[in-house]
Amino acid sequence: MSVFPDLGDHAGFIWMAYGVSALVLAGLIGWIRIDARRQMTLLDDLEARGIRRRSSRAKSKGASKAR
């Protein structure tokens, strides 16, 4: 037998600890993913307007030098 009462009494604290952790980590991952998506769309947008990086432009011209 344990000195302290079992899960029944402290279940709330345990679930809260796991819940808050899951929430914060999910939020962090979500934020990272949204940020990644946003930068991707910005980059695609720029490329669609014909603005691209020197290396990718060289590649499209067929020059293998850029790699």
């Binding site: 344990s2 000195v3 302290f4 009462p5 079992d6 899960l7 279940a11 345990i14 600890a17």
Partner: peptide, 19 residues
Amino acid sequence: PEDYQQGHTVKIMFIHVPF
């Protein structure tokens, strides 16, 4: 198992210590 001293709250340790 539950800890003889801390009961089930030892489960919090499994995330607290890594954090």
